[in-house]
Amino acid sequence: MYSWREEQLRKQRRLRILLIIGLCLLVLGSGATFLMLRRGLPQQKTSAASKNTPLQNTPTAALVNKLSFEADLDIPVLDELLHRPDVLNVADQLILSTRESDRYLGLLIYSQVPELSKTTLSSNRLEKIASKLQDASPSIRMYAAGSLVQNHNMTGVPILIDNLTSELALTYMEPPVSQGEYAQQILSNYLTASINFDPVHRIDTQNAWLKWWQENRVHYMPTL
């Protein structure tokens, strides 16, 4: 016959055991998560997004994994990928990836698909792009700025003008160009100004754009 006190002691013991088991699981779980995160760094060949999200095993994810980002070789894969019906949903996940190439691909999809499918991006997606204006990668910041302008949102214009003087190479672009040249490419095609890019006197080009933007920005109010 158990006394009330013995019953209490047994309950406490069970609780302690459960607590210890819980702590062990927590430690193991944290370790596993840490390892998974480490594995997700860009040195890996396969896409982080496709590894850790429901993208896995979908035809679209398979296409994402096929991309090598060897600029001249990805044409057929990109053509197929950009026409997948779920490609914008894929971009939603790619843009959150820790891998720079995934984020680039997400931005590329956000930039190109609206024009290809004659649609417009939702404000939610435009905000996702805008959040990449502060990305750690200079190339991603440039692509984010360019993507916004391509989607007729001028929030990216100051970033592009700022980088007109940059001689840093823009990753993933074909042919390879400097960030300054990419900025000029977007600005000159989406704004009405006619300002030539002088690769030798980039500062002059930048000043000309700055002046023009200050005078004309009212006509291009950002929508965010």
Binding site: A71, D72, L73, D74, I75, P76, L78, D79, L82, L108, S111, Q112, E115, L116, Q150, M173, E174, P175, V177, Y182, Q185, I186, S188, N189, Y190
Partner: peptide
Amino acid sequence: SALNRRGKIGDVLKANPQGKSWSY
């Protein structure tokens, strides 16, 4: 347009002389 449909300023699929394929 500013960029082509693949988001590039210009691109070419690398020719494969051994496979005798044409590039686009």
